[in-house]
C-alpha cells in the first residue's frame, strides 16, 4: 500500500477541509470495521466470550461481528494453545484469509506456548504464521484484550506491520505503585516510530 500517495480532501475540520493520504484513510476506515475470525481452541475462549459479551463489549471498537469463514474476515484471533496437530489447520485458515489480514495471538499459549513446554505444543503461533499483536496473560483479562485490539487499531492506522506486545497497564488506583515508572502505556508504545517512517 505504500505506493499510493494521492491525497483526498475530507470535510469536517475547523478550517473546512483536511488532507490525508488514501492509505491513511483506508486504515482509518478499516480499523473500525474489523471482521474477526475467532480461532478458539482452549481456556482463553472463556475470556474471549466475556470480552464479546455486554460487560466488556468489543462492539464499541467496531469488532463485534465474528465471521466463521476465513475468507470474510480481517483479523484472526488465535485464542488458546496450538498443538502440533492443530498447526496445519491454523496455517491453512491463515492462508485462506484475504489481504489485508492481521493476526492477534491471544494469551500466553498462543504467543509462546506458555507453560506447556512439551512434545505436543507449538511454542507460539509465530512459528507457523506471522503475528501482529501479542496479548500476554493466562488467560488475559478482558481489559488486556481491549488494549490489544486498540493496539492493533493503532497499527492499522499507521500501517505498521511490526509485531507489538500489549504492555501492562498502570494501576489506576495506585499510580505510584511499584515498578510503575518502568511501564510504558499502551498508546505511547503503539505510536512511537511509524509516524516518522512514513513522513
Amino acid at each position: 500500500m505504500g505506493e499510493v500517495t494521492r491525497t483526498v480532501t475530507l470535510e469536517g475540520s475547523e478550517s473546512g477541509y483536511a488532507t490525508t493520504r488514501l492509505d491513511a484513510l483506508l486504515g482509518w476506515a478499516r480499523k473500525y470495521s474489523l471482521f474477526q475470525y475467532p480461532f478458539v481452541t482452549a481456556c482463553c475462549g472463556m475470556e474471549f466470550m466475556a470480552a464479546v459479551s455486554p460487560r466488556f463489549d468489543v462492539a464499541r471498537f467496531g469488532a463485534e461481528a465474528p465471521r466463521f469463514s476465513p475468507r470474510q474476515s480481517d483479523v484472526l484471533w488465535v485464542v488458546g494453545t496450538i498443538s502440533q496437530r492443530q498447526a496445519p489447520v491454523l496455517r491453512r485458515i491463515y492462508e485462506q484469509m484475504m489481504e489485508p489480514k492481521w493476526v492477534i495471538a491471544f494469551g500466553t499459549c498462543a504467543s509462546c506456548g506458555g507453560f506447556y513446554d512439551n512434545y505436543t505444543t507449538v511454542p507460539g503461533l509465530d512459528k507457523i504464521i506471522p503475528c501482529d499483536v501479542y496479548i500476554p496473560g493466562c488467560p488475559p483479562r478482558p481489559e488486556a484484550i481491549l488494549d490489544g485490539l486498540m493496539l492493533l487499531q493503532d497499527k492499522i492506522t499507521n500501517g505498521d506491520r511490526r509485531p507489538g506486545v500489549v504492555k501492562p497497564r498502570l494501576d489506576p488506583v495506585h499510580p505510584g505503585a511499584q515498578g510503575a515508572g518502568d511501564l510504558v502505556t499502551l498508546r505511547k508504545s503503539g505510536k512511537e516510530k511509524p509516524a516518522k517512517e512514513q513522513a
Binding site: 481452541t41 498443538s83 496437530r85 492443530q86 512439551n118
Partner: peptide
C-alpha cells in the same frame, strides 16, 4: 476425532 487440544 479428538486430540486437537492435547497439551501433555
Amino acid at each position: 476425532q479428538i486430540g486437537y487440544l492435547h497439551r501433555g
